[in-house]
Amino acid sequence: MNFKTVSIIKYPVEVVWVTFRDRFEEIGERVDNVAYIREVDRTRSGDGPLQTNYEWKVDPPLPALIKGYIKPEMLSWNDIALWREEDFQCHWHIVSHYFKDKMNCQGETHFQSAMGGRGCRLTFQGDIVWKEGLSAIAGFMEGPVNRAIEQVLENMIPKNFHKITQATSLLLAAENS
């Protein structure tokens, strides 16, 4: 599945870029249904781009149908990102703790100037590929439950992106008020 979504934050692109790159843990604290975002690693090799590794753990409200089948590991992942300063682009991929090799999720986030320089437009796009189909459970309810889990996970990623941008706006607004 491909996804693309756009958001705008009313602060200049340079400010938003740095906030996203360096203060993700703080932002995570302001997002509903995110248990935590924790920085695992931050490296830069020579003049190359910065690479960050954040661990996510979320706790979203789930449809009754799949609630009993969701294991905590299904709702945590590592978000590994490369930050290219020269064109304000971030390339990322997700490593799921539970689905590991079964799910391939990657994409990029573009940070562009908006609102005549007063804002930053973030375009978040990527794709999720389920290798051999998702098989979270087996048995009688296998089909509908696996489909439902797949949908929840697919919706969660762009949804979280909007929550993150809103939290970033609030964080910046609080500091600039």
């Binding site: 756009v6 958001s7 705008i8 609102m115 005549g116 007063r118 804002g119 437009r121």
Partner: peptide
């Protein structure tokens, strides 16, 4: 994205 400034930017107002 329905905030007026954001909406305006998305639909093509350049400011």
């Amino acid at each position: 994205n329905r905030d007026i400034l954001i909406l305006a930017d998305l639909v093509g107002y350049q400011f």
